[in-house]
Design a binder for these strands. Structure first.
Lengths: 146, 146
DNA sequence: TATTGTTATACTCTATAACTATA
DNA sequence: TATAGTTATAGAGTATAACAATA
């Protein structure tokens, strides 16, 4: 037999696979991919270094350059050189970027049919368990970078 | 405030994002990507048409050609022309493909640390709820293709 | 005419290595 | 020397359009 954890993981993979194109299509209407949408999502008002953004996007720094290039070309964000360390560039959302982010935020929080069809109880329980799993993931991430 | 369903969806996206490279790295040790691993996973003993495989992979038929090309080049599967309809090609796993699939299967069922760290109760509940969500997704899929 | 599979094309994501300009 | 960011490159996933062979 297989463990519940293993089966849960398999179900998680299958569910994401079945929902992925649906989710991507919704972001595509804003001319965003999951990755560019996430970049808008995590950029704080005070900006963020390229390095930190790459970390947030779970990708190599060279890929963050491309993501920022595409968004900067559309005027959604801008690079500013750091005054104290001229190697560093901080990325800031523009007004247009903040407006688009508002619209993207609601998509992250709109459950697709497969989730919306669950009972209220299931939805609440699912949320609670996934947030506990995320907390474990975050703890592990911090431990490994220490 | 946001709905639990919306929050659950957001947590699902975040969790998959944080686990994706970890999962991909495990399949990479078998020289498989998530997509090629899934192709091996779904191929039945009697083979499958390119069309049906593309449907299973949730991608365009032209992309299935590429996936099958890569696996065929490694001798993991083979294309056979259908006898009754010569437009159709059926894809079959080879012996080597079946052996590799065995090894890949266990990876699909091995929970990453973030899931394994959950309590036994949480793991069982998570599995049950996700499988219900998957059932909803499957129902919707069948309805839309009817 | 419609369908199956393929090719051609273009864009995005991903990783690695090499480079630059700073520190 | 080490670090921040970039460029170059290559492989993979994705979608659309056009095509040949077959039905």
């Amino acid at each position: 037999m297989s463990s519940n954890g293993g089966r849960a993981w398999k179900a998680l993979i299958d569910l994401m696979r079945s929902q992925k194109s649906h989710a991507a299509a919704r972001f595509a209407r804003l001319d965003l991919t999951m990755q560019t949408a996430h970049a808008l999502h995590v950029l704080p008002p005070e900006g963020m270094t390229m390095r930190a953004l790459a970390e947030e996007l779970s990708c190599d720094a060279s890929n963050a350059t491309g993501v920022v290039d595409r968004l900067e070309k559309r005027g959604l964000l801008e690079r500013r050189s750091d005054e104290h360390d001229r190697r560093v560039k901080r990325v800031h959302l523009t007004a247009a970027g903040r407006r688009l982010r508002e619209r993207a935020e609601s998509l992250f929080l709109t459950a697709p049919p497969a989730i919306a069809a669950l009972s209220t109880d299931d939805q609440r329980t699912l949320r609670a368990i996934l947030e506990r799993a995320l907390a474990h993931a975050e703890t592990a991430r911090l431990d490994s970078s220490a």
